[in-house]
Simulated assay, not measured.
Amino acid sequence: MFYWLMKYIVIGPITKAIWRPWIVGRRNVPADGAAILASNHLSFVDSIFLPLMIDRPVSFLAKSDYFTGKGLKGWATGMFFKMTGQIPIDRSGGKASEASLNTGLQVLGRGDLLGIYPEGTRSPDGRLYRGRTGLARMALEAHVPVVPVVMVDTDTMLPIGTHWPRIVRVGIVIGEPLDFSRFEGMEGDRYILRSVTDEIMVALQRLGEQEYDDVYASTVKDRLKGPRAPRSTKPVVAAAPID
């Protein structure tokens, strides 16, 4: 109920009127049944615009920090994430990673859509980075397709480190579902998981034409603890009309 209230009555109409988001490939999202929406990750608002622009609810795995902030701002942020169907996870690794995997599998087991950012964190500079293999493991264990999604200009709208969004038109490009049924029963093979993950990242790179760097985004962020890296000048994709 909260999800539909936010999407159609509160957040949805206001957001669409201000930023006029466009979408291409909406019909590539399965009309029913479980699937993973694997998206590049440019901005905090990616998890807002994607659910607004498709016809089915999407559950995102969001870091638990978003739900436990202090003060009025922390409470408001946590409430917003809960009302938009996002699920808190611990991203500290080890047993927490296994718990996150199980949480995602529960969503898929219900026949729902699960949104995942395979890079694991927001891109620090607009490039596309190496994917984490947890996505592949979920897809193979749940026997579901993976739908590549490219967010466009959300980092221009709300760059990392800023608090107030700019009035910039943002977009979404959705590619055709990827079928990995040929790897059924191989979810325990780390080489297969890396191969599947790389195939997903190639699909994302071709769909959005982002510059690709075969290192983890978290590694780059660790290197940039001081000054920020220059943003990539290559556009993700050109603006396109709603289909």
Rank of each mutant, 00 (worst) to 15 (best):
M157H: 06
T15N: 07
G185K: 06
G120E: 00
K95V: 13
R182Y: 06
A31W: 07
M138C: 14
Q106C: 08
G188P: 11
N28M: 03
G208Q: 08
L135V: 04
E98T: 14
W19G: 04
E199K: 11
D155P: 01
H143Q: 14
G109I: 04
R228N: 12
V215T: 09
Q205T: 09
A203M: 02
N102V: 12
G104A: 04
G25Y: 06
D198W: 05
G69P: 03
S123Q: 05
G111Y: 05
W19N: 04
S92G: 09
I18A: 03
E187V: 01
G131C: 00
L193H: 13
M151D: 02
P57K: 12
V29A: 11
K234E: 11
R20D: 10
P241E: 15
P51G: 05
I87D: 03
M186I: 13
G12K: 02
A217Q: 01
A229R: 15
L113P: 04
W19E: 07
P13F: 05
T233D: 04
I160M: 11
M186R: 14
R190D: 06
R190I: 02
I87K: 03
R27C: 09
Y216A: 09
S232F: 08
T15G: 06
Y117D: 01
L42C: 12
G104W: 00
D32K: 15
D179C: 07
L72H: 10
F67H: 05
M53A: 01
G71H: 13
L158Y: 05
G109V: 04
P21E: 00
L105M: 10
E176L: 05
P13A: 06
A38W: 02
I23C: 02
L135I: 01
V220A: 11
V10R: 03
D213E: 13
I54P: 06
G188L: 08
S123I: 07
L37P: 11
V107I: 08
P177G: 02
A239M: 08
L113Y: 00
L50T: 04
Y191A: 11
G104F: 07
H41L: 08
S59F: 06
E119D: 08
A238W: 13
R110T: 01
A229I: 15
D179L: 09
I89R: 06
E199M: 12
W75Q: 13
R231F: 08
R20Q: 15
G78R: 03
A96R: 07
L113E: 02
R166I: 08
R182W: 07
G188N: 12
P159G: 14
G25A: 07
V45A: 08
G208E: 08
N102A: 10
V152R: 12
S47A: 14
D125E: 06
F2I: 07
V144Q: 01
A38H: 04
S123A: 06
M79Q: 15
V147Y: 09
V29I: 14
G33M: 09
T154F: 01
K95W: 02
V144I: 07
A17P: 13
I11A: 13
V29G: 07
R223Q: 09
I14K: 15
L140G: 09
A38Y: 02
F60M: 02
D90T: 10
L50V: 13
F67D: 05
D112T: 03
A240Q: 13
S39H: 09
S195H: 14
D213C: 11
L114S: 04
